[in-house]
């Protein structure tokens, strides 16, 4: 680890101001950033911790009935406080990493990092969420732009995530055995106006929507409706833990299981 300064702003405004310095780096729960720093793979001059900002924490319902989660809310808090409001999302949050990770890692940190194998991007995209930053609101469909790439500008902070609550939803994660990240994770959510299917862990382009499955499931919300549909192995991740063909296969298996579990 290289030496760095740390700032702990108490308000979003102070955090945004501190992040104007081009060598400053936002720090959420640190579950990715701290190991990166320990390996000397990054050298920020200043870390701006977001976890002391009260207005970025907590879970509530909006007037429109969407679930609102502060950007600095930990996975553990979401698992607990969203359990009654949005059980599928709470279950997802409750199976990220281990208790130590869940008590530090935050939804804003996860979405800002956009690891191609992380769970939250699937939930956000699968729920048609709105990402709210200090500067604007971004639809999930516009937010995810490939592995570790997002629509965020430098110094922009995710202050809140709003997720419309579906009629039924489920997340099926087939874990990468070592990291326990998603080797393939599929988030299925059924809304009045259709079904959304978001896949994480599988693609070299990061989280994506399986639109053919969405169409089939919107007509008939059953695993059988997937029929002969399948995703191509082209563009899927190949590594020690799975070939592109295996990942493509798992996308369909996990989608079917998610639909069945969602009921």
């Amino acid at each position: 680890m290289y030496a760095f300064e740390i700032e702990r702003p108490a308000t979003i405004a102070d955090a945004v101001a501190a992040l104007q310095d081009e060598d400053a780096q936002a720090l959420g729960g640190g579950q990715t950033l701290i190991p990166t720093l320990k390996a000397r793979l990054a050298m920020p001059a200043t870390l701006v911790s977001l976890t002391g900002i009260g207005e970025m924490k907590g879970v509530c319902l909006s007037d429109e009935g969407a679930l609102c989660i502060g950007g600095a809310t930990t996975h553990g808090t979401v698992a607990q406080e969203a359990a009654a409001l949005y059980p599928a999302l709470a279950a997802l949050a409750g199976h990220i990493g281990d208790p130590a990770v869940r008590n530090r890692g935050t939804i804003g940190g996860s979405l800002a990092n956009n690891d191609p194998s992380a769970c939250y991007p699937a939930a956000a995209l699968g729920s048609g969420a709105t990402i709210i930053t200090n500067a604007r609101t971004i639809a999930a469909d516009d937010y995810f732009q490939g592995m570790f790439a997002t629509a965020l500008d430098a110094g922009e902070v995710i202050t809140e995530v709003r997720l419309p609550i579906p009629q039924a939803a489920n997340y099926q994660k087939f874990v990468q055995p070592a990291s326990r990240f998603a080797l393939v994770g599929v988030y299925v959510a059924k809304y009045a106006d259709g079904v959304r299917v978001a896949v994480t862990g599988a693609s070299e382009s990061g989280v994506f929507r399986w639109t053919e499955a969405e169409a089939a499931l919107s007509a008939d919300f059953s695993a059988a409706a997937l029929g002969d549909l399948g995703v191509s192995a082209e563009g899927m991740i190949g590594d020690l833990h799975g070939t592109p063909a295996y990942r493509a296969h798992l996308v369909k298996v996990m989608t079917g299981r998610a639909v069945t579990a969602a009921g």
Partner: peptide, 10 residues
């Protein structure tokens, strides 16, 4: 390739 616990499965 399996030089950390991200890829070496304990």
């Amino acid at each position: 390739l399996s030089a950390s616990y991200m890829d070496y499965t304990m």
